[in-house]
């Protein structure tokens, strides 16, 4: 779950004493600062959680000097990424296959002239080939190709496929304007950790 660490100083304890939790919080804080992580969340991405993350993002973006088009594209990429991991999360009973809970992670960072959006979640090895093919496919297309692919998918998709991520990844590629990067790292014989990174020029 998301690390909410509270340090309560019980009256006469010396301030110089650092609990394990405090040093962990500081470590995470320093790490996030060092890596320019603007937002990071690990936990179950319910619609309610997603909505609150997005509201927060929208508000902080509105005070920034990033142009509206980039703000909207970044917002759109994040929505699709969060929707995607929520779908993968629902498709895999991680508790059952790994014997422990392991929620997905989402990170937004800023390095140089780019925003980086990274998600990580476990997927079943059976999903790997299809996911990789889809990403390779969108990575092979230019803007015009992506628009055509988007339109074809929009026209073809049957109502039964509604909840499958079809348009999502094309939409991410279109809004990002850059190739997507991804990796599947084998965790067990049946499960891999799937990381996708999209970036967008600020």
């Amino acid at each position: 779950m998301v690390g909410l660490l509270f340090w309560v100083n019980p009256g006469n304890t010396q301030i110089s004493f650092m609990s394990k939790q405090t040093s962990e919080a500081l470590e995470i804080h320093e790490y996030m600062n060092e890596k320019n992580i603007i937002m990071s969340f690990m936990g179950e991405l319910t619609h309610q959680v997603t909505t609150s993350l997005l509201k927060n993002l929208k508000e902080s973006m509105s005070y920034s000097n990033v142009n509206l088009m980039t703000q909207k594209r970044l917002y759109g990429i994040i929505v699709e990424c969060l929707d995607n991991i929520a779908k993968h999360w629902a498709a895999l009973d991680i508790q059952k296959v790994m014997g422990r809970s392991s929620p997905p992670i989402f990170m937004l960072s800023k390095k140089g002239n780019y925003y980086y959006i990274v998600t990580g979640n476990h997927v079943s090895n059976e999903q790997v080939a299809a996911l990789a093919t889809k990403i390779e496919m969108v990575n092979s297309l230019d803007k015009k190709g992506l628009q055509d692919f988007y339109r074809q998918t929009l026209a073809q998709e049957s109502p039964l496929d509604r909840d499958n991520a079809g348009l999502g990844i094309i939409d991410i590629a279109l809004k990002s304007g850059n190739k997507l990067e991804y990796e599947f790292r084998p965790i067990t014989e049946t499960v891999s950790f799937y990381v996708v990174q999209a970036r967008i020029l600020i």
């Binding site: 909207k72 917002y75 759109g76 929505v79 699709e80 929707d83 929009l154 998709e157 509604r162 909840d163 991520a165 079809g166 348009l167 999502g168 094309i170 939409d171």
Partner: peptide
């Protein structure tokens, strides 16, 4: 203002 890809369909 915005619609996601699922809404697009």
């Amino acid at each position: 203002d915005y619609f996601n890809s699922t809404s697009a369909k």
